[in-house]
Design a protein around this nucleic acid. Structure first.
Length: 200
DNA sequence: TATAGGATTTGCT
DNA sequence: GCAAATCCTATAA
């Protein structure tokens, strides 16, 4: 039996670049209506409070970015292009930042994910919008505390330590500002990661 | 109230 | 590879 530890607030209360990298290989778990759906995190993006014009908190506190000004470990869910994106709030002390979870490798609850998204295993949660559809994450989960471990949380298990050699940092996908920042972290060998091949 | 734009996805060429 | 679909949010009037 692999040992598993739920990530606590201290884990998230750090520089988003560190959290984004270390989330790779961790297990994202949702438990809605007593049904567990989970997957290995294979791709993330960090959004910084300073020097990052692409961060939603960069232009100040708004209704949309409100939870980024709250506590580390909260879920930040927003909608874009008629889809949802799931983030986890990181370092917060006067410093609103977050990590976007872009893709997971499905582990548990695959049948349910396939019911929500009629597609093959590889495409189930490959991309932030697809991931939210597969896990049934929407705006109602915005502000939810992931460190409580009730309906959503992240685990680090002994069997999944991701070899650092297999991790690459690239520019972020889709952002139109601060394009030069290398804040996307991806497991290079994972077929479940999104984005173009040359960014592996 | 109107408008423009975006951390996307999908299907077609 | 490209463009359309889609809808929420921020901004301005």
């Amino acid at each position: 039996m692999p040992s598993a530890a739920r990530l606590d607030r201290d884990f998230f209360q750090r520089d988003p670049r560190i959290v984004g990298r270390e989330l790779l290989g961790c297990l994202l778990v949702t438990k809605f209506d007593k049904r567990v759906v989970s997957g290995w995190i294979v791709e993330t993006e960090s959004y910084l409070a300073e020097g990052d014009s692409a961060c939603h908190a960069a232009r100040g506190r708004t209704a949309k970015s409100e939870v980024m000004f709250g506590r580390a470990g909260l879920a930040y869910v927003y909608s874009i292009h008629a889809k949802h994106c799931f983030n986890i709030v990181t370092q917060t002390i006067g410093y609103p930042s977050a990590v976007l979870v872009r893709a997971i490798e499905p582990v548990e609850g695959i049948r349910l994910m396939q019911r929500r998204r009629r597609t093959n295993l590889r495409e189930l949660a490959r991309g932030p919008g697809r991931l939210c559809q597969a896990l049934a994450i929407d705006r109602s989960h915005n502000g939810l505390d992931l460190t409580l471990g009730r309906t959503m949380w992240v685990e680090r298990t002994s069997e999944t330590a991701c070899p650092p050699r297999d991790i690459r940092a690239t520019r972020r996908i889709g952002v139109t500002s601060a394009r030069r920042l290398q804040l996307r972290f991806v497991i290079r060998s994972s077929p479940f990661a999104s984005g173009p091949v040359h960014l592996r």
